[in-house]
Computed example of a mutant assay.
Amino acid sequence: MSTFKINIIAGPLWSNDEAQKIGGRIAAAHLGKFTGQWSTIVEGQMSVIEVEYNTQPTGSTEYTMDVLAGPIWSNEDAKEICPSICASYGGTWNGQWTTVVEGKMSVCGCVFKF
């Protein structure tokens, strides 16, 4: 199975010790594995950690949760938007969506395997 790596924002990290201590937790929250690499992108304000993923989510445990998707105007709009939104979090769309703030914010139902 092939893998890929991306950077995920982690808030300000002040040292390598701190990054190594919490990087694994941040990566796990995003269903990935911390590679040990990190960098500061805005001095004193924001850092990123490098997270590795498998190209296909695996595992026997499934969890469904709604993720923010910006405004969605119709079922047709959801069919175009939600698969990519869920994929951006490492999940797959379950066909469900709802508006949570009229005209401003909707959510897509995403299934995660781990």
Rank of each mutant, 00 (worst) to 15 (best):
I9C: 01
N16F: 05
L31I: 02
F34C: 10
L68S: 13
W73N: 05
V107T: 15
W73A: 08
K33S: 10
A87G: 09
T3D: 07
W38G: 00
G103S: 09
T61A: 12
F34M: 10
D66M: 14
C86N: 09
V51W: 04
K5I: 14
C108I: 03
P12F: 08
W93P: 00
I49T: 09
I9D: 12
Q45A: 14
A87K: 15
N16K: 15
I41R: 03
V67K: 11
G90E: 06
E102I: 13
A27S: 00
I22K: 14
G91P: 00
G44K: 08
C110H: 04
G44W: 05
T35C: 11
S84E: 13
G90V: 07
G59F: 09
W14K: 12
E102Y: 07
G91K: 01
S74Q: 03
G11W: 07
C108L: 03
I41F: 04
N75Y: 03
T35S: 12
E18W: 12
V67D: 04
F112L: 10
S74M: 05
C86M: 11
K104I: 06
I41A: 05
I6Q: 14
P71K: 08
V111N: 13
Q45C: 02
I26A: 07
Q56C: 11
T40D: 13
S39P: 00
T64D: 14
A27Q: 01
S15R: 06
T55K: 12
V48Y: 03
A29K: 14
K104S: 10
I26Q: 05
S39A: 08
G70L: 05
W97T: 05
T35N: 06
E62P: 00
M105N: 05
K113F: 08
W73P: 00
I81W: 02
A87D: 10
Y89S: 01
S106W: 09
S2E: 13
G36P: 00
V107R: 10
K33M: 08
Q20E: 14
Q96I: 01
T3G: 01
F34V: 12
S39N: 10
K79P: 00
E76G: 15
W93L: 01
L13Y: 11
D77Q: 01
K21C: 12
S60P: 00
S84G: 13
E102A: 15
L13R: 07
V100Q: 03
T40I: 13
M1L: 07
A10G: 08
E76A: 15
P83W: 05
E52H: 08
